[in-house]
């Protein structure tokens, strides 16, 4: 898999995008209209932000299952702060601080206390959901949303681009610079590849893992801010819908481009959002969206699994497993 040049993968990705676009365009002529593409990019902004943070955690070979719960807590924090007349910037910072705090908690638990990441983040996610109920006993918060300017976030434009997508672009550029052009970025990949040799190369492995979890928590709360802005209310279950698309985007991108990276995640998110928006145009009920996302995810993993490709080339392996 790694021998394939990047160009081939880019071409493959462009081909898939073109095929998906053509299929939906033929099924529903409104797919490639400017209006729908704007909606698509706005939708992509929400899932893209959540998956960007997750990319960092996946790069250091860990998993964060807590960000949907943490994002819900962030949404409620944001809503509560706005309903108490706090300025918008303060409210957003409050939500992001919640994300950072839970990221720190996850990071310390996983990196320093060596707890297993999956179960630990499930537990902290459950904790966050429990806390999210405290603000309003589980009811939605929407007081003062009109006045605060939060809702304008959804419609405002920056340099002719919708603000949600502009936020995604800015975050993606920063993430790209951090992960792919800086020493810190190398530290993330080195930690993921081999923590022991990374440590002997002078990389603060624990710090890097903690940082990855913090980034994931913060971007999850950024994503939920956009979701709250478009929905017009904070809900305790708001974050749940982030989980599947974020995982699918990261793994789809990693499958397409050979390893998790910022461009790969963006490509995965774009594909995911195209399909979801296409199916929405086809009037597919909302409860099918997870089915679509998970089918695409499983198909992508199956189609690009190196072991499987090898098996197809050299015949199906026997029941006995190679000792790795």
């Amino acid at each position: 898999m790694r021998t394939h040049p990047v160009l081939m993968r880019l071409l493959a990705f462009a081909a898939i995008v073109a095929v998906v676009a053509c299929v939906f365009q033929s099924l529903t002529p409104t797919f490639l209209t400017a209006e729908n593409l704007r909606g698509l990019l706005r939708h992509m902004a929400i899932n893209g932000l959540a998956s960007l943070g997750l990319t960092f955690v996946i790069v250091v070979r860990h998993v964060d299952l807590s960000f949907p719960g943490v994002a819900s807590l962030g949404a409620m924090t944001l809503g509560w702060l706005i309903s108490t007349n706090a300025p918008l910037l303060e409210a957003v910072c409050g939500a992001m601080a919640v994300g950072a705090a839970f990221g720190l908690l996850n990071g310390i638990a996983v990196a320093r206390l060596k707890l297993p990441d999956i179960v630990t983040t499930i537990a902290t996610g459950g904790l966050a959901i429990g806390l999210a109920y405290f603000y309003s006993d589980g009811t939605t918060i929407s007081q003062n949303f009109m006045m605060s300017g939060l809702l304008d976030l959804n419609d405002a434009k920056v340099f002719g681009i919708d603000e949600p997508f502009a936020i995604l672009l800015a975050t993606a550029v920063i993430a790209y610079l951090v992960l792919h052009t800086s020493r810190a970025g190398h530290a993330f990949y080195a930690t993921g590849e081999n923590p022991v040799s990374a440590r002997f190369s002078g990389i603060g492995v624990r710090r890097t893992v903690v940082l990855a979890f913090i980034i994931c928590g913060v971007t999850g709360c950024l994503a939920i801010m956009l979701l709250v802005a478009s929905a017009g209310a904070s809900d305790v279950t708001a974050g749940n819908q982030l989980l599947m698309p974020a995982f699918a985007a990261v793994y789809l991108g990693a499958a397409l481009f050979g390893r998790p990276s910022v461009p790969a995640t963006m490509a995965g998110t774009l594909l995911m959002s195209m399909m979801l928006s296409g199916f929405v145009l086809l009037a597919t009920p909302y409860y099918y969206s997870d089915a679509i996302v998970s089918t695409v995810l499983i198909a992508a993993i199956l189609a690009f699994d190196p072991d499987l490709l090898r098996a197809v080339r050299h015949g199906i392996p026997t029941g006995r497993e190679r000792a790795v």
Partner: peptide
């Protein structure tokens, strides 16, 4: 096939939940 257990079961779980919701139209 030895694919990653977490991601696969997240996806198959979401698929099952989605079908379950679809059966009762939500």
């Amino acid at each position: 096939l030895r694919l990653p257990a977490l991601v696969i079961t997240i996806a198959s779980g979401a698929l099952a939940a989605s079908i379950a919701a679809a059966i009762g139209s939500g």
